[in-house]
Nucleic acid binder design. Sequence first.
DNA 1: ACATTTTCGGAAATCGTTTTCTGAACGTTA
DNA 2: TAACGTTCAGAAAACGATTTCCGAAAATGT
Lengths: 327, 327
Amino acid sequence: MGSVSRALNNYPHVSEELKNRVMAAALELGYQPAFLAHSLRRGETNSIGFLVGTIANPVIATIFEAATEVLADNGYAITLVSSRNKADLDIAYLRLLASRQVSGLIVSSAAESQDRSSALINNLGIPTVMLDRSIPYGELVYAVQSDHFSGVKEAVSHLIDQGHRQIAFIGGPKNFYPTQQRFLGFKKGLDEAGIPLRGELIRFTSFTETDAFAEALVLLRHHPLPTALIVAGNIILIGALMALQDRDLIVGRDMAVVACDDMSLTRLYRPSITTISRDLNLLGKTAARLLLRGIQDKKRRTERIIKLPTKLIIRESSNYNRRDWTE
Amino acid sequence: MGSVSRALNNYPHVSEELKNRVMAAALELGYQPAFLAHSLRRGETNSIGFLVGTIANPVIATIFEAATEVLADNGYAITLVSSRNKADLDIAYLRLLASRQVSGLIVSSAAESQDRSSALINNLGIPTVMLDRSIPYGELVYAVQSDHFSGVKEAVSHLIDQGHRQIAFIGGPKNFYPTQQRFLGFKKGLDEAGIPLRGELIRFTSFTETDAFAEALVLLRHHPLPTALIVAGNIILIGALMALQDRDLIVGRDMAVVACDDMSLTRLYRPSITTISRDLNLLGKTAARLLLRGIQDKKRRTERIIKLPTKLIIRESSNYNRRDWTE
DNA sequence: ACATTTTCGGAAATCGTTTTCTGAACGTTA
DNA sequence: TAACGTTCAGAAAACGATTTCCGAAAATGT
């Protein structure tokens, strides 16, 4: 009945007395509005879709959890789909989320090419935040990105300060946004120091440990060996470390290493590993807040792209001289 | 209209020709049944709720992703909520999922006590799979568990074979199912070898690295020092390794270590770490399949509990004699 | 030729809410 | 007293599908 609905939804033209009566009755009967009927009539589901390349990557999982916290506090539930790094699943899952009528989307899938999914996202008409992915061109599409470019550039300067001249780079797929940005920073860093780029010291790989291992081995077969290695990606790091161990190269002594993203592995490894770190929590929360604004502001007054800083954490792996870990 | 619905849903009494015509028209218009209306009438949402303690734990994330794959193949979408290891959020989130009318639940939250959430789950009337958690008593509640008991018992035997007599144990919260089972296996293993249990060599901690670090330090302050350490939990392992490094104890040489769950850290650490491994993929897929059967079979003919095996992977950290990692 | 079954379009009920509308009761003000 | 605004109950439409029902047309069987 009309008055009850007005009372429950705090609408005008309803007395305190009635409101209390309705509330009491609702509590008594344990009444909760049926989600489906509510959403059907209201036209929004209060749920947002989250597409990731894989949630098994702790970096993504941490970002997701941070975003989730903000969204949950605002009454949204998150339906998470993982494309397991398969581009065709990406678009299938986007369609799935759209058909579920989500109120918003956060996308951090790992397809090497974003072309098809970007086009789809633009057509969906759903407010979307691209999380650490390419710049969007759609009306309702926003982005939160880390400043990988500056991070790697800074790391290169650091290595050069340490006396390194032969610096190698290994990263994920070449067109994958973070890898791409990191590689640009790598080139810029070398360029500013007047060091020529050596193509044979650059490898791009897929997201699997075994691929990264194989590519890193290729890299470590060159003569003369590079003296430093920048590893762009936390999964890639595992493969790279395996390759270094396989070639009996001691990290820090035989090969300086700079990784990306600070995780338990980089902190616990002996020697500890220098990394280009970023605030994953902030990244996730910023993405969530940006999306919430995107959903509310239909006028599109919010800024489209937010770029967050990185921070170089220098540890033993790139700092052999003041090491205290050898015996 | 009636016929169209019959055609789309593959009901009897509809000719091939009409079916084709309807399909073509649906394709042409890009028609997709509106999720909300569909679910409202059908009385089921084709979505399942997944509650975890934290998705930032790679073990849970891997299990989740495996389960997700099976569920997605069967047309279900997953709404994931993470209670960030807070027990009160557990029940709030369970209510949230219930109010969203999910068709099924998978629960792997990390509350130290399951009492309140278990009671709630029993009242919900939603088919539920407890994932590596305590035995359920409700009608529609199922469980998939790993055989942590046997795993740790086997590990203890292995350590005793290696000559160890002073074996320490550090794990998560005492009432947390995996920790509890592992501790029982630990006691059983010692008991069978006639070795008395020393209370000062046993520590239980929370899920944070820093807590685990502190508790491990307490453990490593005892004289005489234990010669072997069983670490029950992958987050706990990080704290334990930090503590060992802090006390300048070399893993494998000064202290044998057995961890739980095989991850990149246990494989990459030098010396490599012996672990009680299990098939996380199988665990997730089994949980998903069990839930699907639970949703379909209203007769309750499916078995209630599935227990999956563990496998001891012996590496250098517990096998000092044939080590090849020292110089 | 008649009875029976299959096919299929249209009308209507249903799912559980929100929203809108109508009308009655009541109090206030001019 | 007439006019007006507030409060509230109940009726009814809407959201977009599924499902049931009815009846007409066509196909099939005897």
